[in-house]
Design a protein around this nucleic acid. Structure first.
Length: 274
DNA sequence: AGGTCGACCTGGCAGC
DNA sequence: TGCTGCCAGGTCGACC
């Protein structure tokens, strides 16, 4: 899925385009994205609700609706929100699962090729378990070298796996985990508990730097990610190791290595990252 | 408890 | 051209 920078980009765009709008109609084309909720109930409960605020928590987008409802979108690997200012033009994409018709005359499509994503409509955010157990925001004050030291204490898993663990820190996925560790000069295979103080400081600094730069560039498009305008992200050009197996390390020229950790590909430089 | 793996889905692409 | 197998940015539950 889109990771934190992509979700943040989508969230900010949605604020510009649909904040304050009322849902005048909803068309559910594939009810699998609603989980257990019936499409008729989903449509009935969302109808005439106003989008009062849009926030992000980790990789989730939270629409606070008025009166009192929350629509929580988890885009997973291939979810997209694409906005059309004129609802009469542009037929739905073949992967459009839900269309929201809005009071500003626009239309918001939720597309999802692999149908891993979920749209949850709830009365109370506390009913969503993942929001109760999610780790700190990496761009928030609660994420700092001291708190990282606490989070990784006694954890023997490779640091790469922990960086991707949403219970440890929110919003980092496979692409940015590799990029952050490259910038930190840390071997992704290193057990988290073995990180020294200096390394934790570098990890913190690189995490903030990489994520902020990626947000500034409106995210990374490896495969499916597009923003609400259907545009790709600009961080692609700044990717240093992800997806670059056997290409030269941008720092020392050593061929980039690819390994598999916890079932996910990791890319790193064996010379720069120790 | 912590860590890893398979399952969930669809489609693009490399290789034959 | 067409088939097969592999791979994909996430998360959950099962299992060790």
């Amino acid at each position: 899925m889109p990771e934190l920078p992509e979700i943040e980009t989508i969230k900010c765009d949605l604020e510009d385009k649909v904040l304050g709008c009322v849902m005048t109609d909803v068309k559910v084309r594939d009810d699998r994205v609603l989980g257990a909720m019936k499409p008729s109930a989903f449509a009935r409960e969302i109808l005439n609700k106003k989008i009062a605020s849009i926030t992000r928590r980790g990789k989730a987008i939270i629409f606070t609706l008025s009166p009192a409802k929350y629509l929580v979108a988890q885009l997973m690997m291939t979810g997209q929100f694409v906005f059309f200012p004129d609802q009469d033009r542009n037929a739905p994409d073949k992967h459009t699962k839900v269309t929201f018709i809005l009071s500003n005359g626009g239309r918001l499509n939720y597309n999802d090729q692999r149908v891993f994503g979920r749209l949850s409509l709830v009365d109370d955010l506390k009913s969503l378990k993942f929001l109760q157990t999610i780790g700190p925001e990496p761009l928030g004050k609660a994420f700092n070298p001291r708190s990282i030291a606490k989070l990784i204490k006694g954890r023997k898993a490779p640091i790469k796996s922990l960086l991707m663990n949403q219970h440890v820190v929110a919003g980092i996925g496979n692409i940015y985990a590799s990029e952050i560790l490259f910038d930190s000069h840390i071997d992704p295979q290193k057990p988290a508990e073995a990180l020294r103080e200096k390394e934790i400081e570098r990890l913190h600094k690189a995490t903030v730097q990489v994520l902020k730069t990626a947000i500034h560039c409106r995210g990374t498009s490896m495969r499916n990610y597009i923003d609400t305008n259907g545009q790709k992200g600009g961080f692609m050009e700044r990717i240093r190791v992800y997806g670059r197996e056997n290409k030269k390390c941008p720092v020392c020229g050593t061929p980039i290595a690819k390994i598999v950790q916890a079932g996910r590909s990791t890319f790193f430089c064996k010379r720069c990252q120790k």
